[in-house]
């Protein structure tokens, strides 16, 4: 039996730009970003809120966009990896991932960088242990994490300088 479900009007500010759409309540935020808006920076990895590849910031907080419905983000301010660079200049965290070889295959990288952004927003000079704890929700299957930790340390030093 088909159930007729009303679409919902939502307005979300994404990377500083306001978007208004009508969506099915069951549409996940990750599918709204990727399929409706074409923002394919946030990746779909495990789809079970484990891997963190889909991490974006909602009102400044890192969340897994595979485990949030787009309707829950109505009225929110969302930041994806696409919104980090400004005027063609990479964000210091993006730069640090480049310089410190924090990315190999790159699949986890957008989520890893967004989680790193929140980590540094909350704690400008984290210890190695705090970095590893803050990135627990993001899995990388290439780097062994050491280069990622180095990148976050390097970004912290540059951003504090």
């Amino acid at each position: 039996m088909m159930i007729a479900i009303m679409r919902r009007a939502i307005a979300v500010t994404i990377n500083g730009k306001r978007h208004s759409n009508e969506v099915e309540p069951r549409l996940l935020l990750i599918h709204y970003l990727r399929d409706v808006l074409g923002l394919t920076g946030p990746h779909i990895g495990c789809e079970t809120s484990i891997c963190g590849a889909c991490t974006v910031l909602v009102n400044g907080k890192a969340i897994k966009s595979c485990t949030m419905f787009a309707v829950q983000a109505n009225g929110a301010d969302v930041l994806t990896i696409e919104g980090l660079a400004s005027d063609g200049n990479l964000h210091p965290i993006q730069n640090a991932f480049w310089e410190e070889h924090g990315a190999q295959c790159g699949y986890c990288t957008p989520g890893m960088i967004m989680a790193s952004k929140q980590l540094l927003d909350r704690n400008a000079s984290p210890t190695e242990e705090e970095i590893r704890h803050g990135l627990e929700g993001n899995l990388c299957r290439c780097t062994g994490y050491q280069h990622i930790v180095n990148a976050v340390k390097s970004a912290a030093a540059k951003m504090g300088a």
């Binding site: 809120s49 963190g52 907080k61 897994k64 949030m68 980590l119 929700g137």
Partner: peptide
């Protein structure tokens, strides 16, 4: 509990 993303929500 969980990880930072889970604790945020």
């Amino acid at each position: 509990i969980g990880d930072v993303q889970v604790r945020n929500m």
